[in-house]
Nucleic acid binder design. Structure first.
Lengths: 338, 338
DNA sequence: AAAGTCTGTGCAATCGATTGCGCAGACACC
DNA sequence: GGTGTCTGCGCAATCGATTGCACAGACTTT
C-alpha cells in the first residue's frame, strides 16, 4: 500500500506537504500541488479510510439495518439510501437482520463499532435491550417500523390511516369478510395497521371476525401459510389485505398456486407498491402505495445533516409521518352477493 | 466514546491488560478477565473498528459493487453475501453503480480506501481504466458479468449454454421468430448470451433476423422500450427472451401493459428466476434459472478465504462456471402456425 | 535599515487498539 | 541457597493521515 510517507520520500518533502497538497490547502504552492497530485496518481495512492476516521473521529459511513433485502420494499429503501449517500459522499453499509434479534444485535454492535456517522434501523419486534442501549444517544433513527424500546426518531407511515382506507375501499365494493395478514403486536406499526382495519370495520358497522385476522412474524413464509389457511377456511374471506411488505410477498406466493377460480374469488391488497405487483395476474395487484423512497431518502438526509451539524444539545424525539394512497388494479373485484 | 484507556483508568490497570482480557489472552488471570469484561459491558464499551483495522492492517469488510439493488437478481446476490459475511464475522458494504462507470469508479476507490478484505464487482460495460487498475492485484473478483479489462477471477454462468438451451426450447415449440433482448457487446457475458442464441438458431437451421435482436444498456428502461418495439413490429416475434436480469424486468413491465391477446401471442422467457416471476400472468413466467445464491455465496466465501490465507504468491486467474436450467411456466406456448 | 507580513514547509503530537519485550513475584527442583 | 520456570501485567512503539505551531526566507512598508 502506498502511503503519504512513501510519496513524501519519493519527492523529498515532508508528509504534511503531501496531505496539504492533496487537501488543496492554501498554504501550498500551486507547483507543489500539481507535482504531488501527479505523483500520487502515478503511484496509485489511495488514502486509508481507517486512519482518516481515527484522526478525525468521524466516518463517512451510513449504516442501514433492515430485516430483508430480497423484498422489493426494503430494496427500494436500500436504493434510496445508496442514492443519498452517493450524492453526499458517504458510504453505505448494509446489514440484514432476517428479523432475528440476535443477528440484529450483532449488526448494531458492528455499526456502532465502525463509528457510523448515522444509523437507520427497521427494528425487529424483539429488539434486544442491548441493541437499544447501544443505539440510544447516537445519531440513529428508526424507519417504517416503530419499536417503543427504541428511544429514537421515527420515520414512517400513518399506518392507521393506510389500513383504514384500504379496508374502507373493500367495504365500498361490498366485501364483508375481509382477511388481514398482520405483524405481531409488539411493534407499534403492526398495532397501528390492525387498528386501522378495526376502525374501518367499526365505522361502517361491518362485522368483525377474529378468525379472519392472522397475526404472526412479518415474513413471507408465515403469510403464505396464513393466506392458504384463510382461503381454505369453512367460510373464506372474499378479500385479503396484507399489512406488510414481507406479508404481501407471502400472500402472492400463496395465491400464485391457487386455481384461477380461487384467485378470482378473493380480492387481494398488497402493502407497498412495487413494480412486480403490476405483473400479478392479468392486470396487477391493488396495493397501498407508500412513498418509501421519499421516507428513506429523507431519513438518510436527516442522518447526514445531523452528523455534519454535530450539535451536542439533546434533541426532542420527532416522528415523521407520511401518508399513503391505494393504487387500484385488477386484483380488486366487487364481492359476490352471498 | 468509552475507550480501552477509560476502562484501564477505572480499574487501575494498564490498557494492555484490558485488550488482552477482552481478547481472552492466556496470560491474564481469570479473575481479571471477568472483572474487565463486566466493567467493559457496564461502561458500554465498543471497540473502534478503525483503530483495530489500522493496527492490524486488515479489515473485516467485504465490498459488493452491483449495478442495481432493486432488481431481485442482485438483491439475491446481496442476500447471499450478507449471509456468508454474517456467518464468518465480516461486514458487508454495498455499493450501487447504477451502471454508470464514473459512479462505479468512485465506489471502487472508496472500497479500496476502506481496505476491504475482499471486493466483488459486477462490472459495467464501460468500466474505467482507473477502476481496473485499482482492483488489480487486490483480493477482488468479478461476478456474473465478465469484463476483459478486469484482470480478476470470474464467477458466472455458462451463458452460451443457457441461451442456447432456452432458444432451443422455443424452437421445439415451433417458434421461428424469436426476439432477443441483450446487453452490449463490450461485456463477454453479453456476447456469450448472444452467441448462445445464434448457435441454437444455427444448429436448428432456423432463420436469423437481426431485426429481432435488440442490444442496449442492461437496464429495465431499455428493455421496456425494446420489447414494445418488437411487439409493434410489422412481423412481430412469437417469443422474446430477455438475456439479463434488468432486461427481464423491463420486458415484463412492457408486457404488463399489453392486452391479454397481445400477451398470449408472445411467449416470454426471463433471465434468473425470482419469486415474482411466479406472479406473472395466470401461471408464471418461464425463466432461465441460475444458481445465483450459490455463485454469490461461493464467491464471497472464496474472498474471505483468500483474505484469511493472505498468501502473497501471485495466483493464476480462475473462472468458475455454473450451469443453469430452464424453469417452464405458463408464459411459454406453442407457436401459432403462421 | 528595522520591523512587519506573507508564503511554503517541516516537526511532532494525536486518534485507539494492539503486541513484542521485559520485569517482578511465586513456586519448584537439585 | 541458587537457578529455572511460570504467571500476570506494564511500557512503549506501531499503524497512516492530519493539523497546530514554529520557522526560514522573501517581500513590503515606514
Amino acid at each position: 500500500m502506498v502511503t503519504v510517507k512513501d510519496i513524501a520520500n519519493k519527492l523529498g518533502v515532508s508528509p504534511s506537504t503531501i496531505t496539504r497538497a492533496l487537501a488543496d490547502s492554501t498554504r501550498i504552492s500551486t507547483r507543489t500541488k500539481t507535482l504531488v497530485r501527479r505523483t500520487a496518481a502515478e503511484m496509485g495512492y489511495v488514502a486509508d479510510t481507517a486512519a482518516r476516521t481515527m484522526r478525525s473521529r468521524e466516518s463517512t459511513l451510513i449504516g442501514l439495518l433492515i430485516p430483508d433485502i430480497e423484498n422489493s420494499f426494503y430494496a427500494q429503501i436500500a436504493k434510496a439510501f445508496s442514492d443519498v449517500c452517493n450524492a453526499k459522499g458517504f458510504q453505505l453499509t448494509l446489514a440484514v437482520s432476517d428479523d432475528d434479534a440476535s443477528i440484529e444485535e450483532r449488526h448494531v454492535r458492528a455499526l456502532v463499532s465502525a463509528r457510523c456517522a448515522g444509523i437507520a434501523i427497521v427494528p425487529t419486534a424483539s429488539l434486544s435491550t442491548q441493541s437499544a442501549a447501544l443505539l440510544s444517544s447516537r445519531n440513529a433513527a428508526q424507519l417504517i417500523r416503530r419499536n417503543s424500546a427504541l428511544n429514537l426518531d421515527w420515520f414512517g407511515i400513518n399506518d392507521v390511516e393506510a389500513l383504514r382506507s384500504a379496508t374502507d375501499r373493500l367495504l365500498d365494493l361490498g366485501h364483508r369478510r375481509i382477511g388481514l395478514l398482520c405483524g405481531e403486536a409488539q411493534l407499534n406499526s403492526a398495532r397501528d395497521r390492525y387498528q386501522g382495519y378495526r376502525a374501518a370495520l367499526c365505522e361502517r358497522a361491518a362485522p368483525f371476525d377474529p378468525a379472519l385476522v392472522m397475526r404472526g412474524p412479518p415474513r413471507a413464509s408465515f403469510a403464505q401459510r396464513a393466506a392458504n389457511k384463510l382461503k381454505s377456511a369453512a367460510t373464506p374471506p372474499s378479500a385479503i389485505i396484507a399489512a406488510g411488505a414481507g406479508l404481501s410477498e407471502g400472500m402472492l406466493n400463496a395465491a400464485a398456486s391457487w386455481s384461477t377460480a380461487e384467485q378470482e374469488a378473493i380480492s387481494l391488497v398488497g402493502y407497498c407498491d412495487c413494480s412486480a405487483f403490476r405483473w400479478w395476474g392479468e392486470s396487477g395487484l391493488t396495493a397501498i402505495d407508500l412513498p418509501v423512497r421519499q421516507i428513506a431518502g429523507d431519513l438518510c438526509s436527516a442522518l447526514i445533516q445531523r452528523a455534519q451539524a454535530k450539535s451536542e444539545e439533546p434533541r426532542r424525539l420527532e416522528d415523521h409521518l407520511y401518508g399513503s394512497r391505494l393504487v387500484l388494479r385488477g386484483s380488486l373485484r366487487f364481492a359476490n352477493p352471498s
